[in-house]
Write a protein that binds this DNA or RNA. Structure first.
Lengths: 348, 348
DNA sequence: CCGCCGAGCTAATACGTATTAGCATCTATG
DNA sequence: CATAGATGCTAATACGTATTAGCTCGGCGG
């Protein structure tokens, strides 16, 4: 209790081993360059003292002297440990932690970011970004200005989810929504659907755009391929609109919306997929209770988390090993909500 | 891409504002001591430059110069982001994150700790403990030697769960198992039970000891209060033993064991709690599917997480504000597995 | 005119590591 | 024997901040 016993430093080790601090550092870092040579016996002596004292380098000083930390920052736009157990971001974090451990990295959760203008901000008065060698960004929408600044500062980072350029290419690990949606559309066309409608969330996030692009690209041979926003009205209004224009299959961006549409349709006495097929375009982002096995796709979230660690380490050491922009394939889910349109009914 | 643009430092700010680096530091830290005085206009000038440049202090240098970091380390003996969603440690982390955010602290998950002798080790060749101002220790069993070393080094930490002294008192936030178990025992006695048995897990962890102490202390007026280990045999063997010595109520340390005993009893044609009352002494540590509402208690895990942050910040700034050893009360759970012993049957 | 004081700032240093230029010492070579 | 080169190490410095001793300048009392 009396004297807070000073920490063992390289200087202490040096004194004990009868060498200089520099030598200790050289031994520790296993420098075997032609430039710097240490006699094997000296090396052993130093190592022995290190072992005896249980010395471990101060990671702070190490980092200040411009070496790496083996720490990966994780910036989340929401709490990292959610209450809702079936949370959307959880699998990402699971994958991140798995690979961080594999790479021998610790994880710094930047949870202190204050909320400004309704959004958490990466950059604030005393952000702790620089403690980490680099940072993984997790959130549905990421502020373009902040990405710009990260790029400008040359700070190593990777976004989970595809991002448009922001003053330079943005390293990311995303899901290939475009192709997943396209494949679902093709499946619907094969089953004979000709009048398709896309129900969006009305956001401009890249993830939304990609889905819509996939839809448009694949729906060219359809008789009609409209688009509407789920925010325009409630589920019943939406159903009205869909029926009015003869839609036989609807592609719904948001999972909760799909659930709402399905139950609204059933309340109307419609059958799914008999009268209306419903395809969802992603995993639930909020817990939604439903027993329906929707047709759609699965976002490889855990794998995205893992690969984001890989990409980040590449960005950090500048090796750029492997692409710094990766799109992972989504797995199609054969549900029961995509059927064959009823040929007897021309609902146009 | 060309030149990695050097970071803005206090020296840059100083140059722009026409003052010294020391002045910038003083302004930043709002030093208004009698010792150090800065003219208001100078202060404003510096602050203006800081605002213009968007400067933020380098947390690494800050920490090296022996200030605080506002970073809380979290050492977990298992992955912090578990696959099993109903994981035992999750609520602790939830509480920890909530209060860390409230205190403006970031969270450093020490996940890189290597496994030695079947246990993760806090201290290893390049542990990053010192990056954080202090650390929260999370795990059922914590190595006494490591606690000793933390105490010896004067490193601020707090354990989640009561711990015996280790070369000094160990700061902790634990659950008051002893009194929770005692209250359950008293409830059983009130209902007329006279022959009680405690089924332990055979570990020497403090949490196990506390439960057992609570049992022994409260069971003094019982006719018989035995103890056995769940590890001695399978559930059927255990039931045999219980029946043989006329036990009417069993207190089971481990939740999964309680589930196994209940189903074993039912397979025998016994009713619970008619023929045998079962009380559990804690939340499931591994996911166990069951529909039975067991009588027992609930560990205030989320609150323990929160308070561990509080205690740690107290330990860090030496204020010792509030007790550094806290035991939180558990909430009793009225289940359906504790009944009245059948007076018609003397099962002795 | 001297000494003193307070206000407002700066110079210097510490924190613990990594890196680099360069100093001895020794060996080989002409 | 002078010199060149290799070998093995150290002195010095940088990283960016916090802290402290002390400097300057002006005013004021004696």
């Amino acid at each position: 209790m009396s004297t807070p016993p000073r920490r063992v430093t390289q200087r202490d080790i040096a004194r004990m081993a009868g060498v200089s601090q520099a030598t200790v550092s050289l031994v520790l870092n296993n420098r075997t360059d032609a430039e710097v040579r240490i006699a094997p016996e000296t090396r052993d002596r130093v190592l022995r003292v290190i072992a005896e004292t249980g010395y471990a380098a101060d990671p702070v000083a190490r980092r200040l002297a411009s070496r790496f930390n083996r720490i990966i920052g994780v910036f989340t736009y929401e709490p990292a440990f959610p209450s809702g157990s079936r949370d959307f971001f959880h699998p990402f974090l699971l994958g991140i932690e798995e690979y961080a451990e594999r790479f021998g990295c610790d994880l710094l959760l930047l949870t202190s970011a204050p909320v400004v203008d309704g959004r958490r901000r990466i950059f604030h008065q005393d952000n702790r970004l620089r403690l980490a060698d680099g940072c993984i960004l997790l959130g549905r929408e990421i502020d373009g200005a902040e990405l710009h600044r990260l790029n400008r500062d040359g700070y190593p980072y990777v976004a989970v989810g595809r991002r448009d350029d922001a003053g330079g290419p943005v390293p990311y690990v995303g899901a290939d929504y475009a192709s997943a949606v396209a494949r679902l559309v093709e499946g619907a066309l094969r089953r004979g659907h000709r009048r398709l409608t896309y129900v969006s969330m009305g956001t401009t996030a890249e993830s939304s755009e990609d889905r819509l692009h996939g839809f448009r690209a694949a729906a060219t041979t359809a008789e009609s391929a409209g688009q509407m926003s789920a925010l325009a009205g409630d589920a019943d209004t939406t159903i009205d609109t869909l029926l009015a224009d003869g839609t036989t299959v609807v592609f719904v961006e948001d999972f909760a919306t799909a659930v709402a549409l399905e139950s609204a349709a059933r309340r109307r006495g419609l059958t799914v997929p008999g009268d209306l097929s419903i395809v969802t375009l992603g995993d639930p982002t909020v817990p939604v209770p439903t027993d329906i096995a929707f047709t759609g796709f699965r976002i490889p979230r855990e794998e995205m988390g893992r690969q984001s660690v890989e990409v980040l380490t590449g960005v950090i050491d500048g090796s750029a090993a492997g692409l710094q922009q990766r799109l992972l394939a989504c797995e199609l889910v054969e549900g029961i909500t995509l059927g064959t349109p009823d040929p007897a009914v021309d609902r146009r």
